[in-house]
Design a binder for these strands. Structure first.
Lengths: 201, 201
DNA sequence: CGCGTGATTGAAACCCTTCAAGTTTAGTGG
DNA sequence: CCACTAAACTTGAAGGGTTTCAATCACGCG
C-alpha cells in the first residue's frame, strides 16, 4: 500500500486524473518514484552530466537553461507545478547534457526514471497515450518558440509570453523573463514602459 | 510482391538498413506508402489545412515554413534526401496547421500515413526504436535551434549552419538560408563578406 | 540603518533592417 | 553564340531596435 500522504500531492492528482493511473499502479511503480525537496537555486542537472530522470514539479518552479561562452544564461523553459522537465536527448542518447536544470523556488520535485514511463505504459494504455500527447505538445511549443524568435520583435514576444504564461509574470523576476525572451533586462524594461504607455501596438 | 523498382529508392534503402524493415514488410505496408512527384514550388501542405501524412524525401528538397502577418517566410526546417517532415502537431491533434510545406526542387516524395508507423512498429521492434530515436533527435535539434536564436549573432548562426548543413549551402539560394537564420538577405551577404575577409572570428 | 538585488533610465555604440541602387548569374529565345 | 531578361546577390546610406555601460531608484531584509 502506498502512503496515504501521496494522495495529497499534485503528482498523484495529475497522473491519476489525466493519465488514468489507478491507486494500485502507484504501488507497483513505487520504486521508480522518488520525492525530493529542493532549495532555492539548487541544481538538479549540470552541463556535462548525463540526465537520468524526468522531473515532475509537484510544488515550486524549475528552469531549464543553457550557459553560453560569455556566461550568460538562456532560458529554454520554465517548469511550474505539474510540469515535467528533463533533457530527453541526454537521457535517451546517454550523452552529457548541454543544459542546466535548477530550482528557482524552494520546490518539491518527483524524480522519475525512464522505467516509470515504460512500466506505466505497460500497465495502462491510457498512460501511454497521455505521454505521447505530452511529447507532441512539447514539440508544438518548441516550434512556436522558434517561430517567435525568427519573426517577432522583443515587444511582440513579451506580449505573447504574457498571454501564454500569465502566472509566471508574478513569480519570476523580470531579468529571467528577459533571458527567456532573448533580450537584455534593460530592453525588457523599456518594452514594458512602451506597453504601459502607448498601448500594445 | 512489391515492385522491383522499389529497391532503387532511397526510401527502401533507408528503412531497410536503418529501421530493420524486411522486404515482406514493405508488401504488408504497401497501402500506406504512396510515391508522388512534385514540381519546383509545389505545395504539399498549406496553413489552415490539417496535415495527414509524414513526408519522406526520396529525392529533392522540401522546406517547412511559416508565414508571418507581413508575408515574410520563416523557415523552420529544410528537408533533403532521407529526411522525414510533417506537422506532427497538426496531425496528432487533428488541428489546422500553422505551416506550409513545399518542394523547392523537383522532388520525389513518399507520403506515409500514421498507420504506416503504427503497423511497422507492430511488425518490427527495431522500427519502433528507430522512430523513437528520430523523435528524440528532432527535439534535440529544435532545442539547439532555440539556443542559437537566443544567444548567437547572425554571423555565429551562419557559421553553425555551415557546419551542420554544408550540402545545403550549394543547393539552397542564399535568401532562403537568410530566412532560416532569421536575418535579411542583405545582412547575410554582409556576414559572408566579413567571413571571407577577416576570418570567422 | 545599510546592504544587495532587481528595476529603471539615459546616452553612446552596435547590429541589423530598410530602401534604393548596382552587379552578377542563369536561363531563354532569336 | 549573343542579346535579353529575371532572379539572386551585393553594396551603400539612413534609420530603428537592442545592447552596453553607468548611474539612479525602489524594495526587502539582516
Amino acid at each position: 500500500m502506498f502512503e496515504e500522504s501521496l494522495k495529497d500531492t499534485n503528482f498523484y492528482r495529475y497522473y491519476s486524473e489525466k493519465a488514468g493511473l489507478e491507486d494500485s499502479d502507484f504501488d507497483v511503480l513505487a520504486s521508480h518514484i522518488e520525492f525530493r525537496t529542493l532549495e532555492h537555486n539548487q541544481y538538479i542537472l549540470r552541463a556535462g552530466e548525463v540526465c537520468r530522470h524526468f522531473l515532475f514539479v509537484d510544488e515550486g518552479l524549475l528552469q531549464f537553461v543553457s550557459l553560453d561562452e560569455k556566461g550568460d544564461e538562456h532560458i529554454l523553459q520554465f517548469a511550474p507545478e505539474n510540469w515535467l522537465v528533463s533533457d530527453r536527448s541526454s537521457m535517451f542518447f546517454d550523452e552529457p547534457s548541454l543544459y542546466y536544470i535548477k530550482a528557482i523556488e524552494p520546490s518539491r520535485v518527483v524524480f522519475l526514471d525512464p522505467e516509470f514511463f515504460s512500466e506505466a505504459s505497460r500497465l495502462r494504455f491510457e498512460f501511454s497515450c497521455f505521454t505521447e500527447t505530452s511529447l507532441h505538445r512539447s514539440i508544438y511549443f518548441l516550434q512556436r518558440r522558434i517561430q517567435s524568435l525568427l519573426g517577432m520583435s522583443a515587444k511582440q514576444r513579451y506580449l505573447e509570453f504574457m498571454e501564454l504564461y500569465p502566472e509566471l509574470l508574478l513569480r519570476v523576476p523580470q531579468w529571467m523573463i528577459a533571458a527567456y525572451l532573448g533580450v537584455t533586462p534593460e530592453s525588457l524594461s523599456r518594452v514594458r514602459r512602451e506597453i504601459a504607455k502607448g498601448g500594445s501596438f
